[in-house]
């Protein structure tokens, strides 16, 4: 029975003709698809051919990211920065230092420009009394007029000077250029603060030397039985500090104070007079 199904050559040909007639269209389509798939495979495997197809989509996405970057990455960026700063402190400081340095330089430059402007304004005001005073001073002292103007604009003043007993904190003498508050209370508070600071950092026998508050600085010179606290306003230059130290040491020569002495009004008056004699002209001389 199997022989019934074996096709003879002529039948085979007829069947092929029939298949071609029936599936011609599909075969053509299949062949076209194979060609297209081969072309696509080639495009994907060769970057130069593939890129032009992706570019428009990438550009669109990049634009989207640019527009929404802060919202999308704020938290991740902050976290990453925090970790980076914690892990590589020195690197960050080294990176920031030149930028901050530049900012400081710019600020100082701006301030110097303002100072220069003030000096120019003062120079322009030729007929002012102050101007003539400075010109005469320049002529007498030989210090250039512009330098005197500069000093005039960088004023540093002694406001108060206190002579205080080391042990009790009682005021031994006081001279004020402006009369601030009760000197006895200031002497007590200063001694309390001084004692606290010196006690808190008692690694060596060191003394508190300066206290700063806003534009004022208290310069402290400590000796065996007493200390001298000078309240100064303005920016203290090394020259000013040297001059102040010299004056304080010079003042010491004129006083003799022992430990555990009785603090009387007459002693305070005597010491205050000496402070006045010694420091009264301090601001004028220094300027």
């Amino acid at each position: 029975m199997a022989t019934d199904h074996i096709l003879q050559e002529p039948e085979k040909q007829k069947l092929e003709q029939l298949r071609i007639l029936l599936f011609e269209e599909q075969i053509e389509l299949q062949e076209n698809m194979i060609v297209k798939i081969q072309a696509l495979e080639e495009e994907i495997s060769v970057p130069e051919k593939f890129e032009p197809h992706l570019e428009p989509h990438f550009e669109k996405h990049i634009e989207f990211l640019k527009a929404n970057f802060p919202e999308l990455f704020r938290n991740s960026l902050a976290k990453a920065l925090e970790e980076q700063i914690a892990e590589s402190n020195d690197t960050i400081i080294n990176a920031l230092y030149p930028i901050i340095g530049k900012m400081i330089t710019r600020y100082i430059k701006a301030e110097l420009e303002k100072l220069s402007q003030r000096i120019d304004d003062a120079q322009r005001d030729l007929f002012s009394i102050q101007n003539w005073k400075l010109r005469i001073k320049s002529f007498v002292t030989g210090i250039p007029y512009r330098e005197l103007l500069m000093r005039d604009n960088l004023v540093v003043n002694m406001e108060e000077v206190f002579l205080i007993d080391n042990e009790s904190g009682l005021l031994l003498g006081h001279h004020s250029f402006n009369n601030l508050m009760d000197p006895d209370m200031i002497a007590g508070m200063l001694t309390g603060i001084k004692g606290f600071v010196e006690h808190a950092f008692q690694q060596d026998a060191q003394d508190l030397e300066t206290v700063e508050y806003e534009k004022y600085k208290i310069v402290i010179n400590t000796f065996q039985n007493f200390y001298i606290a000078s309240v100064v306003s303005g920016t203290i230059s090394p020259d000013f500090k040297d001059h102040l130290d010299e004056e304080v040491l010079d003042f010491l020569k004129s006083v003799k104070l022992s430990s555990h002495m009785e603090v009387t009004a007459s002693l305070q008056q005597e010491m205050s007079e000496k402070l006045k004699e010694h420091f009264h002209g301090f601001n004028q001389v220094d300027q």
Binding site: G169, L170, L171, D182, D184, M185, G188, M189, G192, A265
Partner: peptide, 20 residues
């Protein structure tokens, strides 16, 4: 700490009390 001061008179003498 807070420091205050008051002057008092005792038997004709004046005493500045510096109070800590």
């Amino acid at each position: 700490l807070k420091v205050d001061k008051k002057t008092v008179e005792i038997n004709g003498h004046r005493v500045d009390l510096v109070i800590w």
